[in-house]
Structure formats: structure tokens, C-alpha cells
């Protein structure tokens, strides 16, 4: 669709997907990101998803809602989602706006996010055969 640098990247690491948003996305791009990510969760049979939003300077009602939607859909598809890298100012604006990420887990950064996924999935919170859990 667009030329130039990629707006988002979705990388596969073991049974996890790491999705990074590199720049501000408009609503259409946000929707496309949601569709791509959900499609890849199915294709790669992913168990966990990390969404890195550190590059976003604004998370408004639409952005937050999209993240929640992704989290819900991923959960229904058997994957755990964690949003990482929400900037302090963005977090404050979300509170002032009255938005929350709802049931989606959040973590400070990518490392914490992966740790969270490892801990949750190893602990058997998601019912999967133990053999498919990646080594921590």
C-alpha cells in the first residue's frame, strides 16, 4: 500500500509474535495492522503476542480500542497478548481520557513482556500441551 519505511513489523520468534508499531498510524492503517496480526497468529500457531507501542505518541480511544480488540480476538484464538512500551505521557493521557487496555496485560518493555508471557504460559494458564511451551 505504502512505499517508504515500514509502518509496522510483525516478527516471529518461536511460538511468539513480536509486533512493533514504528510510527503514528491512522485508523485505516491501525485496522490493517489488527487484521494482519490476527491472521498471523493463526498462521504461525502463536501462543503469545507482544505488541510494542513505544513509538506511539498518542493512544486515543480508537487506538486503545484496537489494542483491546486484538487482545480479545487473540485470546479467543488461544494466544496471550501483552502490550509493552506505553510512554508515560501517553499513559497519563489515557487515564485522563478514561481509557484502559481492559483485560490485556501490559508490561514496561519488550523484555518484561516476554518474561510475562513465559511465566504465564509455563504456569499453564493457557491450557496447551506442556511440550509446546517454549523454553524460558
Amino acid at each position: 500500500m505504502t512505499s517508504g519505511p515500514k509502518l509496522v513489523s510483525i516478527l516471529r520468534q518461536g511460538s511468539y509474535l513480536i509486533a512493533s508499531i514504528h510510527t503514528a498510524l491512522d485508523d485505516t492503517q491501525m485496522d490493517r495492522f489488527r487484521e494482519d496480526l490476527i491472521e498471523q497468529i493463526g498462521r504461525h500457531r502463536s501462543r503469545g503476542v507482544v505488541i510494542d507501542v513505544a513509538a506511539l505518541d498518542v493512544l486515543d480511544s480508537f487506538g486503545t480500542r484496537t489494542l483491546r480488540t486484538i487482545g480479545e480476538v487473540a485470546r479467543l484464538r488461544g494466544a496471550l497478548t501483552v502490550v509493552v512500551g506505553i510512554q508515560p505521557d501517553v499513559a497519563l493521557a489515557m487515564v485522563a481520557l478514561g481509557m484502559s487496555t481492559g483485560a490485556i496485560a501490559t508490561a514496561l518493555d519488550l523484555e518484561e513482556g516476554l518474561e510475562y508471557l513465559n511465566g504465564r504460559l509455563a504456569g499453564g494458564a493457557v491450557s496447551r500441551p506442556a511440550g509446546r511451551v517454549p523454553p524460558p
Binding site: 505518541d57 480511544s61 480508537f62 501517553v90 497519563l92 493521557a93 485522563a96 481520557l97
Partner: peptide, 20 residues
Amino acid sequence: GRTDLTLIATAVSEVARNIV
């Protein structure tokens, strides 16, 4: 400050979206 700028940007985002 950065925080206020983010609040303003978020508010503009909301009202602009209402227009669209």
C-alpha cells in the same frame, strides 16, 4: 511540557475523529 502536548494531541485526535 510533553505531557500536556500528549493531552492536546489526544484531544485533537478525538475531535478530528468525530468529524470524520
